[in-house]
Write a protein that binds this DNA or RNA. Structure first.
Lengths: 136, 136
DNA sequence: CACCAATCTGGACTTTGTCTAATTTCCGGA
DNA sequence: TCCGGAAATTAGACAAAGTCCAGATTGGTG
């Protein structure tokens, strides 16, 4: 599957998002790379040639994608949030010294023995982050 | 066990930290409450009566405590880092709408099926965060 | 007491992200 | 086609968390 801009329009529509120019560019940045990007990185990519998309739009759009379930938010680094185009069940491997973030397929990972939730609460999500470092 | 300021001095020494006035106050704030506090909250607590400790010192001290293994860093909220006086094995329950953070004892939680680490890497830690929300 | 190293401080600065008021774009109907 | 309004975008001011630095304080040792 190629992540062309045209396909992006369809993807956005299927998530109930009005596919504008800027939104298509931002979706394309995320999905064509299949990588975890910060808002900063998205802005840099989208504005490589000529400055086309404002900071406010990048933030608004990423938040919109989040609400519509098109991307997931990954919080591993206190200084910036990453956006993850992979919304399937998976965990994360974070290389502390380089800042590199990669996926761990959840298919074979089992988490058991969690205590019951406090009453009246529902699970929003379970984040499992394995922090690693290059051996000394 | 009471977390008196005198006991704090001993705790700091046992972690190879020179127990200064400010460090004792900061340790006391964290350990007497046994709660997750942000840098901001620590500063507010320490400076309730008269302003005694500068922002720089609060941040430096918390970073020092972190390096010396006296506290743990919990990254759940993109806007601020929490510091956790509990360094035993445990996970976290985060109430998304209220920002309340609590511990989950790791004793009965089992995580299995994680893939092998990339070669040359060592695990720094595994963070498991259960995000919950009040039922609609 | 004097000295030196460690520590602390105020404040300027940086970075990430939010907000707002004004403009631009898009689309349906006359 | 032209118009009007809603949706989207924009620049830039602003806010909050955290870093950095140069100078002042502190504390222990000879």
């Amino acid at each position: 599957m190629h992540y062309t801009r045209d396909n992006m329009a369809g993807l956005l529509r299927s998530h109930d998002i009005n596919p504008t120019h800027q939104r298509i560019e931002i979706a394309h940045a995320l999905f064509s790379r299949q990588e975890h990007l910060s808002a900063d990185q998205v802005m840099a990519i989208v504005n490589t040639r000529h400055s086309e998309t404002s900071k406010a739009t990048v933030y608004n759009t990423l938040k919109l994608f989040l609400e519509k379930g098109l991307v997931r938010e990954v919080i591993v680094d206190p200084s910036k949030v990453f956006f993850d185009p992979n919304t399937g069940p998976h965990h994360h491997l974070y290389e502390v010294d380089t800042g590199k973030l990669s996926d761990i397929d959840a298919a074979h990972v089992q988490i058991s023995g969690l205590p019951p939730l406090p009453p009246g609460m529902v699970t929003e999500g379970i984040d499992l982050i394995v922090r690693v470092r290059r051996k000394a």
